[in-house]
């Protein structure tokens, strides 16, 4: 099974003609994602060439793309100055699921974009995230398709390449995935660990969950408490940033220990108190999952 999206999801790509947008659209299409439309303001009427001679119509606005193609999910590859507007445009066109890959969006822009998305009933994944891949079904974003495989594990992470590292180990250990979700490294993200845990809990195909957190904020603590109370399937955790000094932003805008809050110790403790086994190195994650699944 999968969460949030599946092989029927009809995707519009915002920023499809840009450097990153065009590259990753082709990658997504090659994986099997149904990309039905692209949007670049001012380039409506053009055709985008996908792999194998596939052609995707380009529209000026998301609303036109939805009206003409029935798109029901969007992926935003728009530069930071315009990305919040792009998210708002998608929400305003009533797209129910919006993935925003863009890194570096002003936080105050995102306060407004998230507020509108909530009002319009749109779920935003990200920003500053690698997206979601449901192995064998679809991918929205930039997660490399060749490192995943279908199977029973759900994975949630605030990071990109660290996710790849963990998934790579899982796949090589024969532990495929229902979905791998990168929720994003920004302080304000639209889809939380808890949102993903709820979705995995409702997915009969998911038998175990991996949560990859990092320093900053309290999202991991909340997720641990939620899992402890509500989740019947095992969870394995990993927290990045045990050696990060306080007060320094570690790459991700959200990865900063403020005062004494948001440390790796605090998050690890919250995981362990709620029955989540914590791997000390990325390579241990797959062994803990195998153990939890009795394999």
């Amino acid at each position: 099974m999968s969460i949030f999206v599946d092989e029927k999801t009809r995707v519009v790509v915002q920023g499809i003609t840009g450097r990153d947008g065009s590259f990753h659209t082709r990658q997504m299409m090659a994986y099997g994602t149904r990309v039905v439309a692209g949007v670049t303001p001012g380039k409506g009427g053009r055709a985008f060439e996908g792999p194998g001679g596939a052609v995707v119509p380009v529209f000026d606005t998301v609303a036109e793309a939805v009206a003409r193609t029935g798109a029901d999910a969007s992926v935003v590859y728009v530069p930071p100055a315009f990305a919040a507007s792009a998210i708002m445009e998608a929400a305003d066109a009533r797209i129910p699921f919006v993935v925003c890959v863009t890194e570096g969006i002003p936080v105050l822009d995102m306060t407004r974009a998230h507020a509108l998305a909530r009002d319009r009933g749109s779920r935003v994944l990200g920003p500053n995230c690698p997206g979601i891949i449901c192995p064998g079904k679809t991918t929205l974003g930039i997660i490399p398709g060749r490192i995943v495989a279908p199977g029973p594990v759900g994975l949630i992470s605030r990071s990109g390449t660290l996710t790849y590292e963990a998934v790579h180990h899982l796949t090589r250990a024969g532990l495929g995935q229902t979905a791998c979700v990168g929720i994003g490294g920004d302080p304000l993200i639209g889809t939380s660990f808890v949102d993903c845990l709820e979705a995995f809990a409702a997915d009969p195909g998911t038998e175990a969950v991996v949560m990859i957190g990092e320093i900053g904020g309290t999202a991991e603590q909340k997720a641990a408490a939620w899992a402890g109370e509500n989740l019947d399937i095992p969870v394995v955790g990993f927290i990045a940033g045990r050696t990060a000094p306080p007060g320094k932003r570690m790459g991700h805008a959200g990865a900063i220990i403020s005062g004494s809050a948001g440390t790796a110790e605090e998050k690890t403790r919250a995981f362990e108190e709620n029955g989540i086994r914590v791997a000390l190195r990325p390579s241990e994650i797959s062994a803990l999952v195998a153990d939890a699944l009795g394999r």
């Binding site: 990109g160 660290l162 990092e214 320093i215 990045a240 045990r242 991700h252 990325p282």
Partner: peptide
Amino acid sequence: GAGLAMATMDLVK
């Protein structure tokens, strides 16, 4: 990648 960079530091330690 920031997450992998943090995880690498942690693994060094």
